[in-house]
Design a binder for these strands. Structure first.
Length: 151
DNA sequence: GCCAACGTTGGC
DNA sequence: GCCAACGTTGGC
C-alpha cells in the first residue's frame, strides 16, 4: 500500500465535488511521470491526499483512495476536445487514468503550514519548481499529516 | 541528439 | 498578473 498526493484546481474539481460524486476518473493528466505513477504503481486502496492548487489557499483539503486501476483515458480520443491527442490510438493509447474515491474532507492543511513543518520538508510538493500533479508520499509523511489533521 | 524557443504550471 | 521553473517541440 502506497500513498500519493494528487493536485486539482478547485475551480475545476474540488474535494466538495468528489464528496458529491463519491468517485471520479482522474482524466486529463498529460505528463509522462504522472501517467507512469498511475499506470505502473497505483493500486486499489492506495491513500490519496487531495490537494487544491492554483487557488486562494492551496493545500491538502481531504482524503481519498485509489478505487480503480489505471485504464486508457477516454479524453485522448475525443477529437476537438481539450485533452485530445492525435498520436494516441485505441490500439496504442498514450494516456491512462485511475479512479479515486472520496474518503473524507479535512480542515485545510495549507502549503504555508506544510512549509513550517520539518517533518514534511522532503515532500515533493514543497520542492522548488515542482509541477508534478501526482507525487508519491512517504508513509511517515502520510501518518504525520493524518495525525496533524486529527484523523 | 542537441538545444533554443515556446507553452504551461502554480505559488505568490 | 508576475515570473521562475519546468517539460515538450522541432529545426538542425
Amino acid at each position: 500500500m502506497r500513498y500519493w498526493l494528487m493536485k486539482s484546481e478547485p475551480s475545476e474539481y474540488s474535494i466538495d465535488d468528489l464528496a458529491r460524486d463519491s468517485q471520479v476518473a482522474w482524466f486529463g493528466v498529460r505528463n509522462y511521470q504522472a501517467r507512469n505513477f498511475m499506470r505502473d504503481q497505483m493500486k486499489v486502496g492506495d491513500g490519496v491526499l487531495f490537494y487544491h492548487s492554483s487557488c486562494e489557499e492551496p493545500g491538502v483539503a481531504g482524503l481519498a483512495a485509489v478505487s480503480k486501476l489505471a485504464y486508457p483515458d477516454e479524453t485522448q480520443f475525443e477529437v476537438g476536445g481539450k485533452y485530445f491527442d492525435a498520436k494516441a490510438t485505441r490500439e496504442n493509447p498514450r494516456w491512462f487514468n485511475v479512479e479515486v474515491a472520496f474518503k473524507r474532507k479535512t480542515r485545510l492543511l495549507s502549503i504555508a503550514e506544510m512549509r513550517e513543518l520539518p517533518q514534511l520538508a522532503n515532500m515533493r510538493i514543497l520542492a522548488k519548481g515542482n509541477r508534478l500533479s501526482i507525487t508519491p508520499v512517504d508513509p511517515d509523511e502520510w501518518k504525520f499529516i493524518l495525525a496533524k489533521l486529527g484523523v
